[in-house]
């Protein structure tokens, strides 16, 4: 049987949590497309992470030690992984859909002569045919994709397959191998620190967030006025609003911004793409105001208001004003 290979993502000598989610996905996959599971842990000083993975999952791990993998370049990752994965002749290669994963996965597919399906959120079998479900159209639609008959590289959306608690099983065996693949046409130059902390976002009990749906920068005043109804509140925005220069990046919520979980999150004119949801879906109560009843933000919201925010927010503030006075 052709194996299912999981290419683990390592971070400072330990496995990134997304790697365990990829394992969880691979287990579900192996129930529909039977094949032994193998984890590849490639990086510099990998031994500890490899032992950790073998113990946590009970799956055999091939540790690939490569001194050139201290810092990321897609080139080195593709070379190293292709060389260690090809001899295993897997049916599927599973990779976390992280900033690294989606950078190298398509190229790895080309090297392995494989197809490629990215950002998978669910899997199923229909009339004996394996299908992967993923979002499309900014989350307004779902795609069911049938992988090609041959080999496929798959990336798994973080958060979609929560890692199970480690079952007490015998640890997998760890095989240590070496790779000398080095970057020739790319050179890593380090990392910048994460953006400035926005204390107000972390501490706020209520976050009122603006999306492209506010239409113009001036309408931020509406959002500000809405936030002012709540004590301990803060203003945030989607990426689109920060890219437009309407709000500083320190206030961006999402995968490439802040992750927040306030008591109340009010999303105003935000469509609710996966990248934004990743940063706010654990908020205790989510209210969404959006003109489009089909906007995916309503899939995570607890309370939905289909209204034009430029009319609704002033009305809301006015109603509140009357209630307080009266």
């Amino acid at each position: 049987m052709e194996p299912i290979v999981i290419a683990a993502e390592l971070d400072n000598g330990t496995a990134h949590p997304a790697s365990l989610e990829a394992v969880c996905f691979a287990r579900a996959l192996s129930r529909l497309a039977p094949g032994p599971l193998v984890i590849i842990a490639a990086g510099r000083d990998v031994r500890m992470a490899a032992d950790g993975l073998a113990a946590a999952t009970g799956i055999d791990v091939i540790a690939v030690e490569n001194e050139h993998m201290a810092e990321y370049t897609g080139e080195t990752w593709k070379k190293t992984l292709a060389a260690s994965i090809a001899p295993l002749a897997p049916r599927f290669v599973v990779i976390p859909h992280s900033a690294r994963g989606y950078d190298f996965a398509p190229g790895l597919a080309v090297r392995l002569g494989a197809g490629c399906v990215t950002a998978i959120e669910a899997l199923s079998e229909r009339e004996g045919v394996l299908e992967f479900t993923r979002l499309a159209f900014g989350g307004k639609a779902l795609m069911d994709i049938v992988p090609p008959r041959g080999r496929s590289v798959l990336t798994v959306q973080p958060g979609a397959f929560p890692a199970e608690a480690p079952a007490p099983a015998a640890p997998g065996t760890v095989t240590l191998t070496r790779s000398t693949a080095a970057p020739e046409r790319s050179r890593p130059l380090g990392r910048t620190a994460s953006g400035p902390e926005t204390a107000s976002l972390n501490e706020a009990e209520v976050i009122v967030a603006a999306g492209r749906g506010i239409g113009k920068k001036e309408n931020l005043e509406l959002i500000r006025a809405l936030a002012a109804l709540f004590p301990r509140s803060a203003l945030a925005g989607s990426r689109a609003v920060c890219d437009a220069g309407w709000l500083e990046y320190a206030r961006q919520v999402g995968v490439t911004g802040k992750t927040v979980s306030p008591r109340l999150y009010i999303a105003c004119g935000i469509s609710g793409t996966a990248q934004h949801l990743a940063g706010m879906k654990n908020s205790q109560t989510i209210v969404a105001i959006n003109t489009d009843a089909g906007a995916p933000i309503f899939n995570v919201a607890h309370v939905g208001v289909v209204e034009d925010l430029t009319r609704f927010i002033p009305l809301l503030i006015e109603t509140r004003g009357k209630a307080v006075k009266g």
Binding site: A109, V110, G113, A114, G115, C116, V117, R126, V129, E131, A136, G139, K140, A141, L142, M143, D144, I145, V146, P147, P148, R149, G150, R151, S152, A288, G294, P296, F298, N299, V300, A301, H302, V303, G304
Partner: peptide, 19 residues
């Protein structure tokens, strides 16, 4: 390389938790 196939496109079900 293998080419995947789109079996279908569908609208997500509304989550029941949203009022």
């Amino acid at each position: 390389n293998g080419i995947e196939r789109l079996a279908r496109l569908r609208l997500p079900e509304r989550s029941s938790r949203c009022e």
